[in-house]
Amino acid sequence: MRLAVCAEMVFTELPFIERVRRIHGAGFDVELWDSRTKDIPSLKATGAVFSSMTGYSAGSVVDPATADDVVRTAAELIPTAVELGISRMVVHSAELVDGAAARPVFRSTGRMWTTGVRTLQRLGDLGEKHGVTFCLENLNTILDHPGIPLARAKDTLALVEAAGHPNVKLMLDLYHAQLGEGNLIGLVQAALPHIGEIQVADVPGRCEPGTGEINYRAIAGALADAGYDGTVGMEAWASNDSDDALAAFRDAFTLQR
């Protein structure tokens, strides 16, 4: 397994480029959110390996009125992904503004399902042309993202399975899944063929592994037993010192057998 760290959430007292350098220097890949606010040449010059980035800037995958905006803005962001060598671009089932639903929806419909499948297929076709994979991320609607339809892991997995495109995968966020669903080892085992990347943080608090209730050592063992050799990304706040948070993350996913 490769390990990555989200530069948006650690070393927050430092300029963004310095965060990337610190993560890279510690031996991790780097995850980004909105690349439009970043100095791309400077990021590239750090020599870091970039794991993933946000793959759209407007619209909702499941909204017939705005799905075209998802595909359009995804196409606009692909050149940045290619320049940074990023192979995974993350999308959600709603448009997010500062983490909240731009247009909250509390009831899903059949039309949302069919729109979501078709939009993911369109994204897959786009990704196939440029060598990138679009990853649909599950979100929790209990605490962080109320009003986002079809956001739970079981729904995002069903959408990815229905899309059936090799360039469409699941960004399986275990923090969100624990808040909304639980049964994390069973979830990763069921989702394994469709996982593009796994993201982790502990519950409660959304900090590094070891600060909450999730047994990430057991999850790491289950992933290894299942043959998962992809990326695990820490999308978590540092509970105190960022270097210590990175060390705790590495320790949780370093198997000693």
Rank of each mutant, 00 (worst) to 15 (best):
T211K: 11
L172Y: 11
T254W: 11
E76Y: 07
V117Y: 06
R152M: 09
G180V: 02
L184A: 01
D29M: 12
V70H: 01
A248K: 14
A101I: 04
F28T: 01
Q199S: 13
K38F: 06
T156N: 09
V5K: 05
G205W: 08
I40Y: 07
N240V: 08
R88N: 12
D243R: 11
E208H: 07
G99T: 10
A247F: 08
R122G: 00
I40E: 03
R250P: 08
Q121N: 00
Y216P: 02
D29H: 10
G147H: 09
K169T: 01
A26R: 15
R72K: 15
A158V: 00
D69M: 13
L157M: 12
G110W: 11
R217Q: 14
V117T: 10
E95K: 04
A45M: 05
G116E: 10
T80P: 01
D229M: 14
D243E: 15
E18M: 07
V188F: 12
P64A: 12
D63W: 05
A74Q: 02
A245R: 06
A252C: 10
R36S: 15
H24A: 15
L255A: 08
T141P: 04
R19L: 11
G227A: 10
L150T: 06
V71H: 04
L126K: 04
S242G: 07
M234E: 10
I23N: 01
H24N: 12
L14G: 07
D225N: 08
N138M: 07
G131M: 12
P64V: 13
A224P: 00
I198T: 07
R152K: 13
L43P: 03
S87D: 14
D34L: 11
E83Y: 08
A252Q: 05
E213W: 09
F106T: 14
L126S: 01
G210A: 04
F11E: 04
E137D: 09
G147I: 12
P166T: 10
T46K: 09
G25E: 12
P204H: 07
G116F: 09
D98Q: 13
N183D: 14
D69P: 00
A245N: 05
L120M: 07
W113F: 14
I195Q: 06
A102D: 06
R22T: 04
A58F: 02
G164H: 11
D202I: 13
Y228M: 12
I219Y: 08
D69Y: 05
L43G: 02
F50N: 00
A26D: 10
D69Q: 14
Q189C: 08
V188W: 07
P193R: 10
G59H: 02
G47S: 06
Q121Y: 02
W113Q: 04
V71A: 06
P146I: 04
A222P: 06
G210I: 05
A65M: 14
A58Q: 08
V117Q: 02
V203C: 12
V105F: 04
V49K: 13
R107H: 15
G99F: 10
A67Y: 01
F28Q: 01
V105H: 04
P149V: 14
S42Y: 07
